[in-house]
Simulated scan of single mutants.
Amino acid sequence: MAVRENTIRLHQQIKNEFTKLSNKTAHGVQVYSLNYILHEVAHRYCKSPKTVENIVFNRTVTANYVPTQSEMFNPE
């Protein structure tokens, strides 16, 4: 099954948002906890925190997706 470009783009946006929030510091200390970041990103993208966690830590099909030869040479 081919991974849709929209799904890849959405996952990249989620990862970027997660990175942006996790890199925010004040006085040399991370401002937001991991739990807060997962819930905040999940709320913004209408996903569950577990789904966001799986996307961010590459536990999804799209992270491990390798196209087959027929998909590479016969795009639909």
Score class of each variant (00 low, 15 high):
residue 1 M to T: 03
residue 19 T to N: 10
residue 66 V to K: 02
residue 70 S to W: 00
residue 9 R to V: 14
residue 6 N to F: 11
residue 49 P to I: 04
residue 28 G to T: 07
residue 45 Y to Q: 04
residue 25 T to N: 04
residue 56 V to A: 03
residue 14 I to K: 04
residue 9 R to F: 14
residue 8 I to L: 13
residue 39 H to S: 15
residue 41 V to K: 08
residue 76 E to F: 04
residue 4 R to P: 12
residue 41 V to A: 07
residue 7 T to W: 10
residue 24 K to L: 03
residue 23 N to L: 12
residue 61 V to S: 09
residue 25 T to L: 04
residue 60 T to W: 04
residue 68 T to Q: 02
residue 30 Q to K: 13
residue 52 V to L: 09
residue 70 S to V: 02
residue 28 G to C: 08
residue 66 V to Q: 05
residue 9 R to G: 09
residue 59 R to E: 01
residue 17 E to V: 00
residue 75 P to I: 00
residue 2 A to R: 05
residue 65 Y to M: 02
residue 29 V to Y: 10
residue 74 N to W: 01
residue 18 F to W: 15
residue 5 E to K: 10
residue 18 F to P: 06
residue 33 S to E: 14
residue 62 T to Q: 07
residue 75 P to C: 06
residue 69 Q to G: 04
residue 44 R to V: 13
residue 68 T to N: 05
residue 44 R to E: 04
residue 17 E to M: 09
residue 21 L to H: 05
residue 26 A to G: 06
residue 24 K to P: 10
residue 67 P to M: 00
residue 5 E to Y: 01
residue 46 C to R: 06
residue 70 S to Y: 03
residue 25 T to W: 03
residue 57 F to C: 06
residue 54 N to E: 14
residue 14 I to L: 01
residue 32 Y to D: 05
residue 45 Y to E: 03
residue 71 E to V: 06
residue 3 V to L: 02
residue 31 V to Q: 13
residue 15 K to W: 09
residue 34 L to R: 15
residue 41 V to E: 07
residue 62 T to W: 01
residue 36 Y to E: 15
residue 6 N to G: 10
residue 5 E to T: 11
residue 58 N to Y: 10
residue 54 N to V: 10
residue 4 R to C: 02
residue 28 G to M: 06
residue 65 Y to V: 00
residue 45 Y to M: 01
residue 27 H to F: 09
residue 66 V to A: 09
residue 46 C to K: 13
residue 28 G to S: 09
residue 64 N to P: 12
residue 74 N to I: 05
residue 68 T to A: 05
residue 71 E to W: 08
residue 39 H to M: 12
residue 68 T to V: 10
residue 59 R to L: 11
residue 67 P to N: 05
residue 57 F to S: 00
residue 10 L to R: 07
residue 74 N to L: 12
residue 8 I to F: 00
residue 18 F to A: 03
residue 10 L to V: 06
residue 7 T to M: 02
residue 75 P to W: 08
residue 21 L to E: 09
residue 40 E to K: 15
residue 23 N to V: 01
residue 41 V to Q: 08
residue 54 N to P: 00
residue 39 H to L: 01
residue 56 V to E: 02
residue 55 I to M: 08
residue 34 L to A: 13
residue 48 S to V: 01
residue 36 Y to R: 05
residue 22 S to P: 07
residue 63 A to M: 08
residue 64 N to R: 00
residue 21 L to M: 14
residue 30 Q to N: 11
